[in-house]
Amino acid sequence: MSRIAVVPGCLALLPAYASLRDPVAPLRVAALSAVEWLGPDVEVVGSDAGRRVGAALLDEVARAGAPAQPGDRDRLVVLNGSACRTEKAPGYLDPRAEAYDALLGAALAGPDLAALKDVDLELGRELLADVEALPALVDALAGAELVSVDYADAPYGVQYWVMRWERP
């Protein structure tokens, strides 16, 4: 059995960028909780920045649990949707962003592997989505079932998800 979790590559989750009042407190709670749920042997998959965020989250939680069986590595996949959801979003408002995020979010929650494979990565890049890890996630999700959608929101014009899946 292996576990898979998705968290966003939101740099505000890094300790170096901590504020007095956490601007992403609910996201952080959800992300840490999902990371804590993973077993002791975790592979972090994501873009360069995404892997840094993933590694920082792993550092913050004390993960216990049974030792992993060979071949049963859990995966922490760092990705997020568009950054063009509002006029104040990093990429400004793009009318394609909402539909893109809705499609991707639904495909993740399924999980709908066929739909995930059809996600337009080029459009994702135009919308400043961090979807570099999506192909790897599709592979990891083969035979997996959704455990929970812990977070799905775009509080600063960037679409974040925290989700968990389990593969028997």
Binding site: L11, A12, A18, S19, R21, P23, P90
Partner: peptide, 12 residues
């Protein structure tokens, strides 16, 4: 010596 009160610009 002090963190910003609440910084999110550019790091969301």
């Amino acid at each position: 010596r002090r963190r910003p009160a609440q910084a999110i610009r550019g790091i969301q």
